[in-house]
Amino acid sequence: MTNATGDGARGGGPLVVVCLRVTDLRPEVDPLTGVVTRSAHGAGLSAADEAALERALAIARAWSGRVLAVAAGSPIVEGPLRAAAALGAAVLRVAWPPHDEADGHGAAPGAASAVNAASAVDPEPFGPRAAYLADLAGDTRALAEVLVDAIRTVGEPTLVLCGDLSPDRGTGALPAQLAHALGAAQALGLVSLTPTDDGWLLAERRLDGGRRERLRVPTPAVCSAEAAGLRLRRAALPALLAAGDAPVPAARPTRPAVGAVEVVDVRAYRPRARVVPPPAGATPRDRLLALTGALVAHDPPTIIGPTDAGQAADALVAYLVRNGYLTA
């Protein structure tokens, strides 16, 4: 299909893949209509995605491996991908959602936009609105399969990293779908991920009450992690100049973006107004009391525990049954 470029692609060693979501980090949302306007000027990676790239570079170094940065989207994703290339990663863009890009939508900002800056400002730098809606409707599984197809043109990944949070509905179910498509282990929502000497990964995840759980993850694996204070390193100037305006290879998806749902339009969430009967009472004070429910006796909150997981689950189920949410 295509060959990814960049120093990281050359040589052997395990392949560490990082999946990046490029979006406007400060989109404009019309409070009345819910229309989201995304500008090319805000295009970038979330803190978690940047940390994922940083982790990928560190782990690949520990493994003497190589890094492949993949992003799905319109050509606007090429900006952050070039920045990743300057850090030594091989890069690959997956044209997504599948649509005709011949109309010049989504030219990458900065250097690349110069080439096809025929029009002044692209009103839809992230691709046409219709395609965005189609992407909303398409399930993540289709995207995951297309990503895995694209990754396998470069090699079989040992580790796939994602940021655990994206401002743009990005990575919610994607890591799990990627793990399924790859047949890999998965550990999601991590705060740290370090390779061990025996080729496994040591992961840490938050639990309630300030506790952490530690996981030993085998490879191949798909992991998503929060930024957790990790910042992306900056590229050296010579590397940046060398990466320059090199074209970013694009993979065309070979499967359609099928989805079970057809999205016709998106709107701001506006719950229906609830009619509240006027409170009864002769004086304003009485009406206020009736309205707020002050001075009315309530069941005090139940405190369960500290207890073990089994007993806590039993207590929760018993509560739900008692209040009619579950049938016994």
Partner: peptide
């Protein structure tokens, strides 16, 4: 943001290398 990006785009189209 739009105007300056546009003008810088003209410079890169002429062969200058923009490093942001």
């Amino acid at each position: 943001a739009d105007f300056d990006s546009w003008l810088a785009g003209k410079a890169t189209a002429a062969g200058a290398r923009l490093v942001t």
